[in-house]
Structures are given as C-alpha cells and as structure tokens.
Amino acid sequence: MRLAPATLALIAAAGPALAQEVNLYSYRQPELLAPLTDAFTEATGIEVNVAYLSSGMVERLQAEGDRSPADLVFTVDISRLSAIVNAGVTQPVESEVLEENVPEQYRDPGNEWFGLTTRARIVYASKDRVDPLEVTTYEDLADPKWKGRICTRSGTHPYNVALVAAHLYHHNEEETKEWLEGLKANLARKPQGNDRAQVKAIWAGECDLALGNTYYMGKMLEDPEQKEWADSANVLFPVFEGGGTHENISGVAMTKSAPNRENALKMMEFLSSPEAQEVYAHANYEYPIAPGTEADELVQSWGSFEADDVNLMDLADLRPDALRLIEEVDFDG
C-alpha cells in the first residue's frame, strides 16, 4: 500500500518508539489485516504481532490483567466493542489525528474505541419477485403482505440485536415488540444460517426478502460458487421512520495494560488514516468513514444511503432491552 506524504509525516512526528513492536488481538481474518499491518511496518519499522481469536477476547484480557502483552484490540460489532470497554480492559486515548479522521458518531464518547469502517444492515430482495419500491423502511418488514416471504439468521445474533436496538432507539418498547412479532409472523422458515445462507434461500425460491450486511454481497460476487446467489438479489437500503439506514462498525481500542503505548497510538492513527481506511474497506467491501474517503466501486454501484446518525454507544446501551424483547416474542422459536 502506498501512503500519502501527510500520513507518513504524522507517523514520523509521533516520536521514537519505546520498542519496535506492537501487539494486536483481533477477531478479523488474517487476509484482511495483512495489507494494513505490512504497510504500517514498512512505514514505521514497527513489527506487528497479531493473535487471531475466534472468541473469548474479553475473558483473555481479564485473565491476563496487567501482564497482558496486548496493546490493541481490533474487532467488529458495537456489542463487542462496548463489552470490551465495559469490562474495564481498555483506556481512553486523546489524539487530534483520531478525532479528525473518525467522525463523532463513530467513536466512543469517552474515547475508548474508534471506528474504522462501517457496514449497513440492509435488505436483500429477489430481483424477480420484489419491486424495490415496496421496501423503503425497516418497519415495512412487519407488513402482513410479506407473510411467509422473509428469511433471516437468528434474532439473537449480534447483528440482529443491534438492528433491534436501533428500532428501539427510534420507537418505544411496545412498538418494537409489535414490530418483532410482525417480522416473525412474516418469516418463511425458522431463523437459521448466516447472512449468505439467506441470499441462497432467495435464489432457491424459499423466500423473497432477507436481512443481511452489505459486505456479504461483495464476498459472494467474488466466490464462483456463490455468485449466482448474489446475482439473484438486489441490495435495498431501508431507513427507520424518522431516521436513516442502520450501520454497524469495525473498530480499534487500546488495552489498559498496553506495554507499547507509543507504538499502539501510532498504529491507531495509521489505521484511521484515509489511505488505510480505503484499503481495508475495499478488501472487505465496507464503507470507510474518514472525511474524503470513498467506498469500492462495486459497493458504490449498489446505491447510496443516508446513515442513521445515532452514536453507536447509545445502541449498545439498548442492547439488553433489545435482546429481552427478542426472547419475549420467541423470535427463533
């Protein structure tokens, strides 16, 4: 990756490193991080050691305590970011560079995590059986006309819990529960599988609409075995009544122990740079958030949308209530 002179200057101006390494715990895949870690090392001489985890990040950091080698954590979904902060294993970071690169709605109010890219939680719709103008809001999904025509993964998956939390932000509990009951009544089958499985179900004629994240469309289009599924569906960007399209996020936070704090700050600022955000967003078909950045051409081809302007920590605070409502209606039952 080729860095702009301004980005290199910011990294150099951060001062000499205490140790020529930085340690990262990540829930993201190696193939997504490697271009960024390689570019950071090339620009700074600082080696990046990554521990790729599938689960248990909070528990590991708590068990390690002050002895933890981790400087940074890199993860997706506001529920995971807020869980890390609430566990007391991160520290606030003051940085003019981060504040300039990361809009306020995409960072923790206490500066304990910073967003890097976003993904929209959208509707996949059959090209053959659904007029795109029929679904313009999330509330539309509870309309009885869709009875037996919607597919989704588990209601208790973090992606869907965040969406329900967003509904709860714009509506009261009673309205959100009614919406969940209406959505459940419209399901074509019991919630199952991942987001790609829902698009496959549209292709197979099992349902006409499905909830999913935008980036899965890009992933399926690059997979010869799944391209046919993706080609059968349109990407629709519904909004909440009185709001925008729901987004979730990937983000980074500095650990409380951070043995290489100076290097960790350099890497956070690097990851937030427009150049790094665009590389990462293009690799995973997500949306960069730094001012002046653009999504991949394929992602742009799906259309534009007005993002919901709620701070994601407000949604994280609503997550327990959202999960309770999902369980009260027995959404997965």
Rank of each mutant, 00 (worst) to 15 (best):
S79V: 12
D66V: 14
E104D: 11
E99W: 03
A51R: 02
R119C: 08
V58T: 12
V73S: 06
Y124K: 01
T90S: 13
L116M: 09
F74A: 02
A87M: 10
L61N: 06
L133E: 04
E134V: 04
E100R: 15
R80E: 07
T118E: 10
T90Y: 04
R67Q: 15
T75K: 00
V58R: 12
A63S: 14
L98K: 06
I84A: 15
G65S: 11
D66M: 12
P109N: 13
V123D: 03
L98S: 07
D77P: 00
A120T: 11
R107V: 05
L81D: 05
S82H: 12
D128N: 08
T90E: 05
A63P: 06
N101L: 00
E99C: 01
L61K: 07
G88E: 01
E100S: 15
S126E: 03
T75M: 10
G56Q: 09
G110A: 15
D140F: 08
V73L: 10
V123L: 06
Q91R: 14
E100C: 00
S79D: 15
Y124V: 02
R121N: 13
G65W: 11
A120P: 03
A120S: 14
D140R: 11
D128I: 01
V89R: 04
V93K: 08
D108Y: 01
I78C: 07
R80M: 05
A120N: 09
T137S: 15
V97D: 02
S68W: 09
W113F: 15
I78T: 14
S54Y: 03
L81S: 06
D140N: 14
Q62D: 09
L81N: 03
A125H: 01
A63D: 11
P103C: 06
S54K: 08
T137V: 12
V102Y: 07
L133F: 00
S79C: 06
Y138H: 15
L98W: 05
Q105S: 11
S79A: 14
G110E: 15
T136V: 06
E134C: 07
I122V: 15
D71P: 05
E99N: 06
R119W: 07
